[in-house]
Simulated scan of single mutants.
Amino acid sequence: MLRRAAVLWCASGVLGLAGAQGVGAFGGGSAPDRMAGPPERSVAEWLVRLQQASRIPSYVGTFVVSSSSGAMSSARIWHVCEGNLQLERVEALSGAPRSTYRRNELVVTFMPEARIVRTERRVAGGMFPNLLNPGGNFSTADHYSAREMGRDRVAGFDADVVLLSPRDDLRFGYRIWSEKRTGLVVKTQTLDAAGRVLEQAAFSELQLDAPVRAAKPQLAMPSTDGYRVEKPERVRTSAADEGWTLKAPVAGFQPQNCYRRPVSPSASMVQWIFSDGLATVSLFMEPFDAQRHGHEGVSAMGATHTLTRRLTDPAGAWWITAVGEVPPRTLRAFVDGLERKN
């Protein structure tokens, strides 16, 4: 849910989420119980609840990502929040060994097989189980509606279930399980227009309010001795300064950040990031290189779609890659509106 293709160099997560066909494919159990309760929260109230839940004092758990092909990935997560300081460690339990440590926006990833440590600054929002993108004055309620689905249990905890449905065909829907006491997201699904589950992530085991003293040793970053330390060479910039503009905005999506990084001694790539508060789209623009760039088209992995296209203008040829957890038509709207200003 809401996670990342590998091409997103500044927002890549430890695990990519894959798709599934229906709740039953994940062993989700019985449907949430519909129980009478207080008046339903609005979209804005739900988003505030989910965002604030990321600041609960501490938790430790294992979360699992399932795919429609039957593949499964899992990771162990330790999280501590003390005032304005957030510490986190995510340890991959499947695939290549990888440990990611976060101290607020500073993220350090250890890859022991390659003996590489990668450090970067990354916005914390938008990564499971913190679903929301911080910053921006998003008109989310104009593009999603909220309907409470009742209560369910996940990893032994009671959870309120909410369905966030898109009001148009430019975004997917989300079914979210929010732990009843803290609001922490304990399970989430991304849904297509027919209500089929495209992606799911959920805690299989969770300890809330884990003793901070016991969790802190797990958050201590190991020494980088013997590792090659890499720092992505990206520079904050603006689309206008890089010569790019959108002829028309895509409804609900606001520009968030823009970065430039080298891809060769003589060329650089620009990443322009947009969000509607839940879904994120990145546009990558770089000079066309026939040896590196293949066929134009659209591909999908779960809810994440990728569109590639060659753009030609009087100044030369460009290779455009649009990536996001949105329907392909949304990526086409971005790419169709992209224009080079020389």
Rank of each mutant, 00 (worst) to 15 (best):
H295Q: 12
A303L: 01
E286S: 03
R260L: 02
G297D: 01
V263P: 04
P262T: 01
S238C: 02
S223L: 05
G277A: 10
T280D: 02
G243Q: 04
T280Q: 08
A267S: 13
D276H: 03
S266Q: 09
T237N: 07
R310M: 15
Q254K: 05
A279L: 04
E242C: 13
Y227N: 04
P287N: 08
Y227C: 03
V229M: 13
C258Q: 03
L283R: 04
W272Q: 05
M301F: 13
S299A: 14
R309K: 14
G243M: 10
A210S: 13
V263I: 15
F288H: 10
R310N: 11
E242W: 11
M285S: 00
V250R: 11
D276I: 06
L246D: 05
G226D: 02
S266N: 12
A220R: 13
K247P: 00
R213E: 15
D225R: 14
P287Q: 13
L219P: 07
A279D: 14
P222G: 09
Q218E: 15
A210R: 05
A239T: 12
S275F: 00
A290R: 06
R228M: 10
V250Y: 10
H305V: 08
Q291L: 09
R261W: 10
A240H: 12
A239F: 14
E242Y: 09
F284H: 15
S282W: 09
G297S: 02
P249Y: 06
D276L: 02
V298S: 03
A267C: 09
M301S: 15
A210W: 05
A300E: 10
A239V: 10
P262N: 01
T280N: 01
G302T: 11
A210C: 03
Q271Y: 01
Q291K: 07
A279Y: 03
T245Q: 11
M285I: 07
S223V: 01
E242T: 09
K231C: 10
Y227I: 05
R213M: 12
S238M: 07
R309G: 02
V250K: 11
V212S: 11
I273K: 08
F253K: 04
A240S: 15
H295L: 11
V235K: 07
S282A: 15
P255C: 03
P217L: 00
R261E: 09
W244M: 14
P211K: 07
V235A: 03
T237Y: 14
G226C: 00
V250L: 08
T237A: 13
V235P: 00
V270F: 03
Q271F: 00
H293D: 12
R309Q: 15
I273V: 15
V298F: 06
D289N: 08
G277Q: 15
G277K: 10
E286D: 02
T306K: 12
N257T: 14
R236C: 05
A210D: 02
M285G: 00
